[in-house]
Design a protein around this nucleic acid. Structure first.
Lengths: 318, 318
DNA sequence: TTGAAAGCGCTAACAC
DNA sequence: GTGTTAGCGCTTTCAA
């Protein structure tokens, strides 16, 4: 392993000079600068991050802590993970994956948490490490978070349906007592209240076939043209199937989903959906956690909400 | 930060004794053992992995290097990644994600590579770090690898179709000049040769709608009952749609896919498929890379092939 | 501007 | 069985 000393000898300087060339280039004279840089290249020196971490008490590692059950993991995570890894790398950090909330925290600088439940939050605080939550934190929670604005997303979806001429608008939500589920439903209700339209809210579990059954029983009430705003793409997939057996999409009936990960592109017709902007989300998460890590003082918790956009495809009128 | 010294003082022993309690428990007397263990608990000591890594020249970190384009990433990866992280953690290792084949290798002990192309292989060898490929290595490549047995998988699929009474069996493959694509096709051909059945091979890109179009044009040639063996679940999804418009599934026509990740459960009817056994695959990968890391000598490359099983669902006759 | 010394927390090698 | 010494590769004092 090539180390500072090897470079120092090659350049006939002390290792401190070499170290300074890397960490404090302004403190070293131009001649030595050049000399050292040549030597670094010549011997193929790469700084040892471990030694650096030991002396700096900083690891340049951020952990992605996934608290959700592995079996229920949505394909979302692959993209998010990769984007996070990429963004962190640009800042000189490395991404590590863990499923264990109790894993040691000495070898990391910060934690990005996903799939958490309310009861995890106090444990997370006790860890005494910078934390950024993926998913909006409860109002009284002193942790920072980044989330898509669920209510704004469904508001956009509902308004879009209205704008496209659908007046009989249903909402098929998640029968789940979680903030994001409630916020999405609230988005629908807010817009329908504003437009003074009839509110039709139904709930189901997040499975295509359950949504299919549910909507099949609703079809005869439709006052065409009808629109169906769905809490997730999975639900939308089932809705699409149910509706398609009887009505024309998008003429008689429009369907919009939420997530925009993978499923939306597999449906027939392709699904119009509210897309989670993972590129932006991961950027914000990384900026968030790094500012916490690199700040001298303890930052106030910062809760970022990102308003998602609609991706128009084939399941809604143009 | 609590360190060895703090524990040593608390227990009135030297730090070496504490170190030994952790790393070589057999070399320390029972009394001190107890004493030290109490002290460790009392002060809440957690070994500093960074210091450990520095002195041992071992980082206890394995990198997952994803060479595939982010945008084409299949949802597969989330599950694989999580399983890998989990298995590695059991062995005391940590999983890190990287997309950069040239990233420094001093802070890691080994690399698991996915989405590689032939031209990456020489770079990987030059890294001089233990490497395990996900996906079968070319025969002359001196790197270890783990892969699902693609040929055996499609052989099972084809034989299953034959066994269920389908005699007119098509294969819809990938128009991709990659080993796994060729192996899958070979699996179909091998079984059809053995059964002396008519060989009908078609190829398409990995998109549902392309497969749909392709098969729609084939339908009129079917000699029912017909079976369609598909190289991927995405293809199978399109095939399902095309066939469904005309024939009954699975009575007139059976369809089987390959991968068993996510898509298969979303189709209607649910897709019978050859499932990639990710739990096993990740176990083998981890065992593989760790044996390389922990072996004193350089191991011969080891190529593991895992025969996948069929998950019978609704798109084939019972 | 540059260098020498000390030490981050740990363990292997060697003494006792 | 236990302690002492040295050093992994680096950076932050502090002195020149």
């Amino acid at each position: 392993m090539v180390n500072l000393n090897d470079v120092a000898q090659k350049a006939h300087v002390s290792k401190m000079t070499v170290s300074r060339v890397i960490n404090h280039p302004d403190q070293v004279s131009p001649e030595l600068m050049r000399l050292v840089q040549q030597a670094i290249k010549a011997v193929g020196y790469v700084p040892n991050q471990v030694a650096r971490a030991l002396v700096n008490q900083r690891q340049y590692v951020v952990r992605f802590l996934l608290l959700e059950d592995v079996s229920t993991v949505e394909p979302n995570y692959a993209k998010l993970l990769i984007r996070l890894a990429n963004n962190l790398q640009k800042k000189g950090y490395t991404l590590e994956i863990s499923l264990d909330i109790m894993a040691e925290t000495q070898s990391i600088d910060g934690i990005i948490v996903s799939g958490w439940r309310t009861e995890d939050l106090s444990k997370l605080q006790a860890l005494d490490v910078p934390v950024t939550l993926y998913g909006a934190a409860p109002t009284k929670c002193p942790l920072s978070s980044v989330d898509v604005d669920n209510q704004a997303g469904i508001e956009k979806a509902t308004e879009y349906m209205w704008r496209q001429g659908y007046r009989d608008i249903y909402y098929i939500g998640l029968s789940l007592d979680l903030p994001f589920a409630r916020q999405r439903e609230a988005g629908y209700r807010a817009v329908m209240a504003k437009k003074d339209g009839r509110v039709s809210v139904y709930q189901t579990e997040n499975h295509a076939h359950l949504a299919d059954t549910l909507v099949t029983n609703l079809l005869h009430n439709f006052q065409l043209p009808t629109a169906i705003v769905c809490a997730t793409d999975r639900i939308a997939l089932g809705v699409l199937r149910a509706v398609q057996r009887v009505y024309h999409i998008p003429r008689d009936c429009g369907v919009i989903g939420f997530d925009g990960v993978f499923i939306d592109q597999l449906t027939q017709p392709q699904l119009t959906t509210v897309r989670q902007p993972f590129a932006l989300i991961s950027e914000k998460i990384v900026a968030q956690i790094i500012s916490q890590i690199e700040s001298e003082i303890i930052l106030e918790p910062n809760n970022i909400s990102i308003s998602p956009d609609i991706v128009v495809r084939e399941s809604t009128r143009l």
